[in-house]
Amino acid sequence: MFPYPFRYFAPTTPEEAFGVLEQYGDEAKILAGGQSLLPMMKLRLAAPGVLIDINGISEWNRITEDAHALTQGSLIRHSHWEHTHHIRIPLLYETAGHIADPLVRNRGTVGGSLAHADPAADWGASLLALKAQVHVQSRVRERWIALRDFFIDTFVTVLEPQEIVTAIQIPLASETDFTGARYLKLERKVGDFAVVGVAVTCSFNDQGIVTEAGIGLAAVGASPLSASGAESLLINHPLTSEVIQEAAERAAEECDPQSDRRGSEEYKRAMVRVFVKRGLRAIQADWENRLKKPA
């Protein structure tokens, strides 16, 4: 299985990339890690006439951080977060090890995953939970888009043909808060897309009250979803079993799964409930055990 022929460009600066993209527009596809695009091209499900390989653009391969946010270039590969524990954003580490398989993680990129907009994307769920913003740029303009406004439908985003995802920004919880997170994924085997994926993250003040909460869902809608109703049930509460139960039920209502060979709609809803519950319980346990943990 081989792709149809295409023209290949490997710009080394953003300007060059925007220029080529503007020239070819709809005909062109951006090649980042290529771990979704190239298989589709090999199966001839995708046949772009022009491929713009952005791996040589070093600006998009950086991570910066200030007091309020972490900004990662879109070319950061999944495996970076598999090996990096960020104490204020533990969900990145928690998620990375569940994506695809170890070899794919060494190549696939966070930005590529978002732009591809697979409803089962693990990063989609996690970065929704983290209230991430996506930096999108073309030759003529740039804009920040909240990730929850970024996905439109299965494999469809708000990206215009001339635009490229260049960075992802994640707000940081208060430095004095404790943040816990889990990514729970039901897969039939390693390398499988999620049957259901649930990302949960909570920050607690020193009273154990939730100050920030995020719940993202994969493979239970046309795109990755944010369980914002469930999130709101957590804010300003301690994670009691009642609160957890309520949030889990709410998340199960908020999702919109389809029945298929991986399970019925009912099953997938139930898995959202089970995973939100398990994730929140684990986070609560992390908070309770926080002092026992080595610094």
Binding site: L186, R188, V195, R262, G263, S264, E266, Y267, A270, V274
Partner: peptide
């Protein structure tokens, strides 16, 4: 023995948690 298949049984028998 996919998980969903087992779960359908658990649900029917009141065993699903």
């Amino acid at each position: 023995l996919f998980p969903w298949k087992i779960w359908e049984i658990l649900k029917e028998k009141g065993l699903a948690m």
